[in-house]
Design a protein around this nucleic acid. Structure first.
Lengths: 217, 217
DNA sequence: CCCGGAACTTGAACACGTTCAACTGGGGGG
DNA sequence: CCCCCCAGTTGAACGTGTTCAAGTTCCGGG
C-alpha cells in the first residue's frame, strides 16, 4: 500500500459524489480536485483522465456484482432463477447510478477506449463475466444441448450487455421496464433451450452457433 | 433556398474531408472554419456543435441508403436476397468512413443526444428505416406468420442496428467479418421465420413477440 | 432613394480537460 | 548525521469546444 492510495480513494469518492449531485458534464476536474483538497494536477497523477474516474467506479460495481451473483448461485439450482437473479443483481447495483449511465455507455462504446467490453484491457473482466455465466449454466439442474453448451455462456454475456444497454435507455421509473424485460425474457431463453432439442430446430441451432462463433474475436 | 445554404454545405464538406484526413479529434472547429474560409462563430451559426457536423453527414448517408435500398428491392422478390441486399448496401455506403465510425457511435449511443436512433428528433428517420424493412418483407414472396408480421419490420431494424454496431467494432480488412455476419445470419433469419410456423414453436414466438412489443417505446 | 429588420458574419472571451516543469518532504544508504 | 532520490504534489499554461455582443450585408416596403 503506497503512500498515495488514500489520496486516490479520496479523489474517486469525491468524484463519484459530485457525479451524483451534478452529473458528469457539470463535474469539472478542478471542482473534484478542490473538493478533495488536492491540486488538479494531482488528480491526473492518479487517474489518466476524467474517463478513468468513471472506469474505476464501474470496476467497483463489477466486483460487487460478482460477489452478489455468487450469493444468488448458492441459493438455487433452477436455471431460470439463477439467470434472473444474476441479471437483477446487476440492475440493482447500477440503479442508483442511472443518472450518469449514459456517460459510461458513451465511453464504453468506443472500441478504442480501454473501458470497452471488447478491448484488450477488458479481457480479464470480460473473461470473468463469461465465467460467471458459465457458473450460472453449469451449476443448474437444466442440461444444455451439447452443440449449444460451449457457446451459451458467451451468448448469455452478450445478452447481459444487451440488457445493460436497454437499461441505459430505460427512462421508466425505477427502470421498471428493464425488470420486466428480464422477467419476460429469461423464461423465454430457458424455453428456447428446451426447444433446441427438437429435430426440426437442431440444424438451425447449429447454424446459429456458427454465427455466434464467427462473432467472437 | 436561403442565402447561407452554400456556406453550410461548404462547411460540412470541409469538415468531412478533414475528418477523413486527420480523424475526428484532430479536426478542430477552428481548422474547419479557417479551411472553409469562415469565422469559427459562423460555423456555429449553421451547426449547433461539432457533433452536428457528424450528424449531418450521417443524414446524407441515410438518404443515399434509402435510394440504393429501393433499387435493390426493385430487382428481386426473394426475401433472403432483399434483406441481404439492403444490409450490404448499408455497409457499402459506410465503408469509406469506418475510420471515424466510433465517433458517431459514441454520440449516437447517448440517449440524450439528438442523433440517438431512439431520440424524439430521430423519430422520423427511425420510422423511415422501419418502413424500409416493412417494404423488404411485404414486397417479398415469403409469407410471414400472422403473429409475427406486425413486429417483424421493427425487429429487422433492430437487427440492422446490431449489424451496424458490429461493423463499428469490426477491425477486419474491408470489414469482411461484417459481410460474413450478414451472409450467414440473413438465411438463418429466413429459416427461423419458417420454423415459427411449427406448433411447438408457436407459443414461444408469441412470447417473443410480447417481449419485443415491451421493448418498443 | 432610404430605412428597418432579419439573416449572416466576426473574433475575442470563457470554461473546460489536460500537460508539464518545478517543488516538497520523508525515508533509506553512506 | 547528511544527502539524495523519487513518489507525491503544485498551479500556471496550452489548445480545445462553445458563446455572445457587436458588426455587416441584403432585401422589401414606404
Amino acid at each position: 500500500m503506497d503512500r498515495g492510495d488514500h489520496t486516490k480513494q479520496l479523489i474517486l469518492d469525491t468524484a463519484v459524489a459530485m457525479f451524483h449531485e451534478r452529473g458528469y458534464d457539470a463535474t469539472t476536474m478542478r471542482a473534484v480536485a478542490t473538493e478533495a483538497g488536492v491540486a488538479v494536477g494531482n488528480a491526473y497523477h492518479y487517474f489518466s483522465g476524467k474517463d478513468e474516474l468513471v472506469q474505476a467506479f464501474y470496476g467497483r460495481i463489477q466486483d460487487e456484482h460478482r460477489a452478489r451473483a455468487a450469493a444468488v448461485l448458492r441459493e438455487t439450482t433452477d436455471l431460470t432463477a439463477r439467470l434472473r437473479g444474476v441479471l437483477h443483481a446487476g440492475v440493482d447495483l447500477m440503479a442508483p447510478h442511472h443518472g450518469f449511465a449514459s456517460t459510461f455507455a458513451r465511453t464504453a462504446i468506443d472500441p478504442a477506449s480501454p473501458s470497452s467490453p471488447f478491448s484488450a484491457q477488458s479481457t480479464a473482466s470480460a473473461d470473468a463475466a463469461v465465467g460467471l455465466f458459465r457458473d450460472v449454466v453449469e451449476g443448474s439442474s437444466t442440461t444444455v444441448p451439447r452443440t449449444l453448451a460451449p457457446e451459451l455462456p458467451h451468448l448469455l454475456w452478450l445478452a447481459y450487455l444487451g440488457v445493460t444497454l436497454f437499461w441505459v435507455y430505460d427512462g421508466s421509473p425505477g427502470q421498471a421496464r428493464t425488470r420486466a424485460l428480464i422477467d419476460s425474457s429469461v423464461p423465454l431463453i430457458v424455453r428456447l433451450l428446451r426447444l433446441a432439442r427438437l429435430p426440426a430446430v437442431r440444424s438451425v441451432v447449429a447454424d446459429l452457433v456458427g454465427v455466434v462463433r464467427g462473432v467472437r474475436v
